[in-house]
């Protein structure tokens, strides 16, 4: 199968639905396994940080959440381009179904960041470069959600959200740069996350496991939500009825 064919087929809900069947469970199981391994490893077996002690273990849930928060938004931006330029059906489904997941991950990153900040910085919240840009990211997710809710026509809402997601993705680097500029100006480097450049493997290995687990969770969410959305979108299509019939009478 050439790349071009693959591209066209990815745009077809039917093809995606049949392809993705075995994958959704696999990714979910893999996500749970990896995340449980990484969390247990991080909680009990990774060495404590020489400065922060055991509060450092929050990194193993904080960083994966933050990584997902950004990756999901980037995915929305890519889906936005696909929808605006090629009017790909699947892109609209991605835009409609991934905003909640991304917003929850951003909220989790902010929450774990605050909980980590209390013992480390002595305060729950600091307008530090990264915390600020994560908070802004949450507002960007809220904006996408609110815009979708406000527009009655589904097609128009999809394209409006696509445009907003693209504008947001273009802006994110500038936002990040500007808030980092601003905070280094005001607070110096006192509140930087003290990550030793040479973090030993016993410390970063569980983090790597959890980040991989987080991406599997992302994939599981993407596939499951798209499958549900496809079935809801075309409940009358012949292939959907065939599939449902197969499920009834195995």
């Amino acid at each position: 199968m050439t790349l071009k064919q693959f591209w066209h087929r990815l745009g077809s809900p039917k093809w995606f639905f049949h392809m993705s069947g075995p994958w959704q469970g696999a990714f979910a199981v893999l996500a749970v396994l990896l995340l449980l391994t990484g969390m247990t490893w991080g909680l009990a077996f990774a060495p404590p940080d020489y400065q922060q002690g055991n509060s450092f273990r929050i990194i193993y849930v904080h960083v994966p959440a933050a990584v997902l928060a950004q990756s999901v938004y980037l995915t929305l931006g890519v889906a936005g381009v696909l929808l605006l330029v090629w009017r790909m059906k699947m892109a609209q489904l991605v835009l409609e179904n991934l905003v909640g997941f991304g917003a929850w991950m951003t909220a989790l990153a902010l929450f774990t960041g605050a909980v980590w900040g209390k013992p480390t910085w002595g305060t729950w919240w600091v307008f530090d470069g990264r915390t600020t840009s994560t908070l802004v990211l949450l507002f960007l997710y809220f904006g996408l959600y609110a815009l979708r809710q406000a527009i009655p026509s589904r097609e128009a809402a999809g394209r409006a959200c696509a445009l907003l997601a693209v504008v947001g993705v273009i802006n994110i680097p500038v936002i990040k740069y500007s808030v980092e500029w601003w905070t280094t100006l005001h607070q110096g480097a006192t509140f930087k996350l003290t990550e030793a450049p040479a973090m030993p493997a016993s410390m970063w290995a569980p983090l790597l496991v959890n980040v991989l687990g987080a991406y599997c969770l992302f994939a599981a969410n993407l596939i499951a939500k798209l499958r549900t959305a496809i079935l809801r979108q075309e409940p009358g299509a012949a292939w959907v009825r065939d599939w449902a019939a197969g499920e009834v009478r195995p």
Partner: peptide, 20 residues
């Protein structure tokens, strides 16, 4: 209100550089 929600995050860099 929707407009404010959409635009404030995008306007943040201008605010930051302007004030600083």
């Amino acid at each position: 209100v929707l407009l404010a929600l959409l635009l404030l995050p995008l306007h943040l860099p201008v605010l930051v550089f302007g004030v600083s």
